[in-house]
């Protein structure tokens, strides 16, 4: 099961990376970013799982799963949402300057 999870994580991350590198629409870049973040979240949670474990709410029924990565993942989700919001704000602002959402048109910092 862990192998399956890791396989999915790698594929999801690669999918996100592919999107960022090859899609021209800047919204697709944000999608790629989201996919990469989701891959990492999946990795953290799947790695925290202990077979036969129960949710980390006391009183535990049997062993509990590892709660520390859950805390990290919570933080990561919130921060991911914040950075995606900021990315959207950047897109809106850039759109006013260039009137396009093509990431190849944003070349003002060249040189």
């Amino acid at each position: 099961m862990a192998v399956m999870s890791f396989l999915t994580v790698s594929l999801l991350f690669a999918l996100g990376l592919f999107t960022v590198l090859s899609r021209r629409n800047v919204f697709k870049t944000v999608i790629g970013l989201t996919l990469m973040e989701s891959a990492v979240l999946l990795l953290l949670i799947s790695w925290a799982y202990i077979p036969g474990g129960s949710a980390p709410i006391l009183p535990l029924q049997g062993k509990g799963v590892d709660p520390l990565p859950h805390a990290f993942t919570l933080t990561a989700i919130v921060i991911g949402a914040c950075d995606i919001a900021l990315a959207f704000a950047f897109i809106m602002k850039l759109n006013r300057f260039e009137r396009s959402v093509n990431v190849d048109d944003f070349r003002r910092l060249k040189g």
Binding site: L21, V103, D104, L109
Partner: peptide, 14 residues
């Protein structure tokens, strides 16, 4: 050499 393409830079980095 700098093309100005964001994707190009990311590609090079990766």
């Amino acid at each position: 050499v700098q093309s100005g393409f964001l994707r190009g830079y990311l590609f090079a980095a990766v």
